[in-house]
Amino acid sequence: MKKIIKYVIIDILRNKIVLAYTVFLLLISVTIFNLEDNSAKGLLSLLNIILIIVPLVSMLFSAIYVYNSSEFLELLVSQPLKRKTIWLSLFMGLAASMAFAFFIGAGIPILLYEATPTGFMMLGTGLLLSVIFVAIAMLAAVMARDKAKGIGVVILLWLYFSIIFDGLILFVLFQFADYPLEKIMVGAVAFNPIDLSRILILLKMDVSALMGYTGAIFKDFFGAQTGLIISFCVLITWIVIPAWLSLRKFNHKDL
């Protein structure tokens, strides 16, 4: 397994895109921290980038990589290797690369400029988001045989998680404005890792006061130790379930 991960990572590193992504993140985060007069504000600007760019790049890159390495997969499958090993190695290689790129590109500036609980929360959720969207992209890639279709699905998924889901939430909120939905919203957030990460970070930033009653309910839940643990479990579930589904699918895939 280690060997395959090694070859996957070597191959990804040879691919300049991850390097470019790292440099891009690094440039953005350093500029943001230098431009904003106070670094807490820089963190806020960085929040948007993490919640938008990280899922997009993680998904697109992973999907394209899976499609482009179909020959590599084919070669490996004809070798004395378990399919599970091959697929999980590919996943780990991708996840490690994306997480590492995020760590270098955004994590190090955060640690340098803003080593606060908020910063750590942002770092943690950013790393998790990187891995989550690698898993989701791999599921999409294994489901759709056609590359163009697969990439289309990935872009749609990204749109769904970053905009459409929130639109639906807004729609539901207005449709059922007469009902107390705050607590249900705590649950609803679990269905979108981007929203969950955003709220975890925002609550650490102490903007919950702005969020009024909703914020208070959220703070009650996510601020407490158990809430925090549950949220991280949910995020990890977002890695495990897509990865497991894609593995099942890959086990029966014809190459």
Binding site: R14, S69, S70, E71, E74, S78, P80, L81
Partner: peptide, 21 residues
């Protein structure tokens, strides 16, 4: 069983390998 593949040498019709190796 997956170990049996260690005893097979396979030459595909179209050899496809990681392009940048």
């Amino acid at each position: 069983d997956w170990k049996y593949r260690a005893r097979i040498g396979y030459m595909p019709q179209i050899g496809r390998y990681p392009e940048n190796m």
